[in-house]
Amino acid sequence: MLVGYVRVSKADGSQTTDLQRDAMVAAGVDPERVYEDHASGAKDDRPQLAACLKGLREGDTLLVWKLDRLGRNLRHLVTIVDDLTARGVGLQVLTGQGAAIDTTTAAGKLVFGIFAALSEYERALISERTVAGLASARARGRKGGRPFKMTPAKVRLAAASMGQPDTNVAALCKELGITRQTLYRHVSPSGELRDDGKKILGRR
């Protein structure tokens, strides 16, 4: 089964998905099976993408108009496609620089393999630079690493909010200035403190 995903960056009505939807229909996608988001590609919270990925089944093929409609960046894109491949789901890109990608074909898999290799190379470079930067900082008597995003006050607010059934997780994360991953690393969905949250509050 063919499933489509379309996205525009603005939710104020100044951009439409008509062009992308027309391309999906022309490619054979049932209009009822096209998921649509109105959100920046850099945002974690894209509910229709999450629903689309969750609903895909083995043997399905996900169609996107361009690669930048799907992933936030190359690393995110590779992660999505790796997950789809493991589940037996294909990916087809209709236009743009990624139009050669169709993971249901051998040639398409080869093209995406090149993307994946570039992503791995990028990760290796970032890791190498980070290690070198930390070593240089330590040599000068400075401690490296990023500051904690969570504070005791944020942990307490997160725990209290997650304990309420009507809490909007996306809104809470925005208010605290953190990602969902950071939130759930410190607090469970029911509001219980996890190990990282206990450490910040000094509870062992």
Rank of each mutant, 00 (worst) to 15 (best):
M1I: 08
V3Q: 05
G4R: 03
R7S: 04
V8R: 04
K10S: 14
G13M: 03
S14L: 00
T16N: 10
T16F: 01
R21K: 09
A23D: 08
D30F: 09
P31I: 00
E32Q: 11
V34E: 02
Y35N: 05
E36V: 11
D37Y: 00
A39F: 05
A39W: 02
D45T: 15
R46Q: 05
L53K: 10
K54M: 08
G55A: 11
L56R: 10
L56N: 08
R57T: 14
D60N: 10
L63Y: 15
V64H: 01
W65I: 03
W65D: 05
D68Q: 05
L70Y: 01
G71W: 03
R72A: 06
N73C: 01
V78N: 07
L84W: 03
R87H: 08
R87W: 04
R87P: 13
G88P: 11
L91V: 06
V93R: 01
L94A: 02
Q97D: 11
A100V: 13
D102N: 06
D102I: 00
T103F: 07
T104E: 02
T105Y: 15
T105P: 01
A106L: 08
G108F: 08
K109C: 14
V111A: 15
F115C: 09
F115G: 02
A116S: 07
L118R: 04
L118M: 13
L118I: 11
S119M: 11
Y121K: 14
E122Q: 07
E122W: 07
S127T: 15
E128K: 15
A132G: 06
L134H: 13
S136N: 12
R140K: 10
K143Y: 06
G145T: 09
R146A: 09
R146D: 10
P147W: 03
F148V: 15
K149C: 12
M150K: 07
P152L: 08
P152H: 09
A153G: 14
A153Q: 14
V155T: 03
R156G: 14
R156H: 12
A159R: 12
S161P: 10
G163C: 07
G163P: 05
N168E: 06
A171K: 12
L172W: 12
L172S: 01
C173T: 02
C173S: 01
K174F: 00
E175R: 15
G177P: 06
G177S: 04
I178R: 02
R180M: 11
T182F: 14
T182Y: 15
Y184V: 00
G191W: 11
E192G: 03
L193A: 06
D195M: 12
L201N: 05
L201C: 04
R204E: 13
